[in-house]
Design a protein around this nucleic acid. Structure first.
Lengths: 345, 345
DNA sequence: TTGTAAGCGTTATCAG
DNA sequence: CTGATAACGCTTACAA
């Protein structure tokens, strides 16, 4: 069954192809009458315009790509769902491209832009430490979502949406300190992470300092590079090592809820209790942090808001309605069962 | 920066466009020499062929769509990751389209096929109860993944990959019975689910019957239609209702791990213990079922195998290497901490 | 082995 | 308001 084209429709309606095109695309220059008639015929024949042809003709296709660095972390799933919904709502196509931890996401983006004639790009995750000249090869608007940027980048060169990773991390560690914890372990990103990983580490250090606590680098444990980043397994393995080491601590702050859950597993396996023996805190505020037993104290990021704002900014950029913007959402400390006050001592 | 085209490359190389095209597409009729030279120029200029143009020319674009019915259930995420990897590996584009619970996925598929000139489709989730004539409007190969089909469909008309939902469900309930449970609640799909929901319910009934246990419909609770299906929240709400009812039971079998975790939360909130007061079992074998506290007894579906086989069959179908196939993978009962033997009585 | 030229199905330009 | 017709960038007969 050869597919039906706009020409077929035009013939059936006894009009020119232009007119059919106008009907499809809601152009003003067409009478309501003919338009209704054409739409009727289109519906009856299940005609759907060929996307490739449209994209070829339009200089840019109506598609947005979302590039995710590293394998899916649960928090991203919520974001992605919102992206998808919003993009579909705007009648754009949506391309999800996961890029491996070792790959260069910018490289991928540049290729994809040409290949698929993208209208916009969302970068999710990763560090985004790229040379400026390479960044300039990207000619479509893009927004960095939940990727904290360090100072070396000119804020007028890109847009971003995130929480204040430094502040929120500080908030959690400050809370833990206020509960009497003096030896707080951190499950952090790998050391080469100059993005949120670094910011959260800095927040941790600052909070410690502000409470007059010494920074003990033996309590800072990085995720394993050979395991999926931010995964439960990673948290489990790292915590297990920590527990087996001689280093004492009373609380663990993991920079994602998934890591925190892995940490819990390791602690339970060691025959210890949470929060009586160890307090455990996470970051993100994904569903499972609430459902876990014990429920996990965490920093809840407003995922829906973040995702919606990301898309909003991206489309504003596409329509040239705005210059570069850096939207920072507040996150919320949610205290639950996995942490407790301990005796000063 | 106007994009560079195949013509530009041809000019730069001092050859015809055909030659460039041949170089790009690994055609045989070209000397290694010219090919190398052309590829070199392409690389230097960061040329990437316009996908729309290629797709327009080729009668079908090299793209596979995965349609997911209903909002993402954690189990699907693993499948999707594998799909993505495999499809990318085959140099095909990958389109992920979530379709709302109320929407007709077949309708969406038919549109998408025309619009994007798909080469193949994977259906994930849903019941897939469609009229044969409508099914015939789909002219590209498709594979049903983890969608149990009931008898009324002719197995020669479609391909599928899944576990034996009836058998695996039976296996779990049989296990629970063997542990002395006589009053086993079921958190099942909505009653209009004629697919895996129904099959798992049938497996439950059969196991009960084989153990000489009466079927008590008050112990069969359906997910709430107004909540995300298969979600933790759904399991939580349903279980809460169940606990507040007068109906006695000693075990709950939830047809997904997420539901099971929600159930656990409700039980803990009621001040009860797992497994001492209630045994809880899930289905799927997602990571969190292992990491949860207590770890959840479940049926582990071989997600990677299922996903890989789905893609394999789809491509075999595309290349006409096979007729319709129904691959059924065995799943595994994984006994963990959330269930226990109780006294006969 | 290489090049020329005709489409693929749309949309946009411009003349009726 | 409507309709020819020329692109859009690529693949592929067909010719050389």
């Amino acid at each position: 069954m050869a597919s039906i084209t706009i020409i077929d429709i035009a013939k059936m309606c006894g009009v020119g192809v232009t007119t059919v095109s106008r009907a499809i695309n809601n152009h003003p220059d067409i009478s309501e009458e003919t338009k209704a008639m054409i739409m009727q015929v289109i519906k009856e024949n299940h005609y759907v315009p060929n996307n490739s042809a449209r994209n070829l003709k339009r200089s840019a296709s109506k598609t947005i790509a979302v590039l995710i660095k590293g394998i899916t972390n649960a928090f991203f799933n919520r974001l992605i769902q919102v992206f998808e919904k919003e993009i579909q709502q705007k009648k754009y196509s949506f391309i999800l491209q996961r890029v491996d931890d070792k790959e260069d996401e910018l490289e991928v983006a540049i290729e994809l832009e040409k290949e698929k004639r993208l209208r916009g790009i969302v970068f999710l995750g990763g560090y985004f430490s790229h040379a400026k000249e390479k960044l300039e090869q990207l000619s479509v608007p893009y927004v960095l979502c939940t990727i904290g940027m360090t100072e070396e980048f000119d804020p007028n060169e890109y847009s971003s949406v995130s929480v204040d990773d430094f502040k929120e991390s500080y908030k959690m560690v400050d809370y833990l300190c206020s509960q009497g914890h003096k030896k707080i372990a951190l499950i952090s990103a790998t050391m080469d992470d100059v993005s949120i990983g670094k910011l959260r580490l800095e927040g941790y250090k600052k909070a410690l300092a502000d409470h007059g606590l010494a920074y003990n680098e033996r309590l800072v444990r990085c995720m394993k590079e050979d395991l999926e980043s931010y995964s439960m397994k990673n948290g489990y393995v790292v915590t297990k090592e920590l527990l087996e080491s001689e280093d004492e601590f009373t609380a663990i702050f993991a920079i994602s809820d998934s890591l925190a859950i892995g940490a819990c597993k390791a602690i339970f396996e060691a025959g210890k209790r949470i929060p009586e023996d160890y307090s455990v805190a996470g970051f993100d505020g994904v569903d499972i942090s609430y459902y876990y037993n014990p429920s996990i104290t965490t920093i809840r990021q407003p995922a829906e808001d973040i995702a919606e704002e990301t898309i909003k900014i991206l489309f504003d950029l596409i329509h040239k309605k705005t210059t570069h913007i850096h939207k920072v959402f507040p996150a919320e400390l949610v205290v639950r069962e996995s942490t407790m006050r301990i005796e000063q001592g």
